[in-house]
Amino acid sequence: MDFALTPVIALCLFVTGIAAGFVDSIAGGGGLVALPMLLSVGMPPQLALGTNKLQGSFGTFSAALNYIQKGEVNLKESAMGIVATLTGAATGAWTIQHMEAGFLQGLIPLLLLGVLVYTLASPDFGDTQRKPKLPTPVFYTLCGLLLGFYDGFFGPGTGSFWTTGMVLFLGFSMTRAAGYTRVMNFTSNVVALTVFIALGNVVWSAGLIMAAGQVIGARTGSSLAIKNGSRLIKPIFITVVFLTTARLVYQTYL
């Protein structure tokens, strides 16, 4: 089926962008909403992946900006993480052009399952700010390089790993972790998007329509997350981790 942008498809993409931006700004996982829609309207996989990165970048930028403006994120504090993530994502994006990501497909669902079990077993996970277990520069350097590489190389669950790491090792609340995660996601998204653009794998018309919805959804979702804190973020986070894990298990083992 060849992709053709009709008024009905454009409306569906716009609405999907709102939903994806809303979910992603709170707990990540917007691709679980956006990518199936892009594929369902007849877009070939590589174009769908590139277009998804385009529209998702607008959403993560909108959400990150809102968290920054509301005082939940300090860019100076996260500067080292941004640089490390940029470096890792560029390396991962280059590496994926030369080898397959298949070996990660069996490992990542198990790691995400661990995140899910730990979150469910910790009733107060991310409810309040706590004492960090790692120095901030060490955490951002290690996780920026590793998760940046992973996002550029493979991707699913990156936001969940960032949020969990920030809560566990930096003592962040879920709200603060959600804000800093969006900044890191935007950084690695831009790197991956640059690769897709260079390869010509982006449908700009569809991506920009979804991007308009993403901006609306991300702004709304991040505002609600800031207002309601972990009581809103945690159940959505758990749902997103569960769905991401289920999708990867289905793709890998079934």
Rank of each mutant, 00 (worst) to 15 (best):
L113N: 00
V117S: 06
I108M: 07
M37S: 15
S40E: 11
K76T: 11
P36H: 12
Q69E: 10
F61M: 14
G29Q: 00
F61K: 03
G28C: 06
P44Y: 01
I96C: 03
G31T: 10
F103R: 11
L65Y: 09
G50C: 02
A90I: 06
G56R: 04
G50W: 02
E100C: 08
N52K: 02
T91Y: 02
L116T: 07
T51Q: 02
L47T: 12
M43A: 08
G56D: 00
A27Y: 07
A93L: 05
V73E: 14
K76I: 07
M80N: 03
T85Y: 09
L54R: 01
M99L: 09
A101N: 13
G102M: 03
V117A: 10
K53W: 09
L35P: 04
V73A: 07
L32I: 08
Q46H: 14
L32S: 08
W94A: 14
L32F: 02
Q69L: 15
G30S: 08
G71I: 14
I68W: 11
G42P: 11
S40Y: 08
S78P: 00
L65T: 13
Q69G: 10
P109C: 08
Y67E: 10
P44A: 06
E72F: 12
L65R: 05
I108N: 00
G106I: 15
S25W: 11
S57G: 13
L38P: 09
A64W: 10
G30H: 02
L86G: 05
L113D: 01
A64I: 08
G114N: 02
G114A: 13
G88Q: 08
Q69I: 07
E77T: 11
G81R: 02
G42D: 13
G92E: 05
G102Q: 14
L49E: 00
L86E: 09
G81W: 04
K53P: 06
P44R: 07
I82E: 04
N66S: 15
I82V: 15
T87R: 04
M99E: 03
V73C: 11
V73P: 10
A64N: 04
A64Y: 03
Y67W: 13
N52L: 04
L112T: 08
A84S: 15
I108C: 06
I26T: 12
K70L: 14
L75R: 07
L54H: 05
L54Q: 11
M43E: 11
A84R: 10
T85R: 11
L49Y: 06
L107W: 12
V33R: 00
G81E: 07
L107P: 06
Q97R: 09
F103L: 13
M80I: 14
G42R: 14
T51H: 09
A89D: 04
A48E: 00
T95G: 00
Y67P: 00
A27L: 12
T95A: 13
G81S: 10
F61W: 09
V41E: 04
G30E: 02
G56L: 04
P45W: 13
L75T: 08
L86V: 00
L32R: 06
L107N: 05
A79H: 02
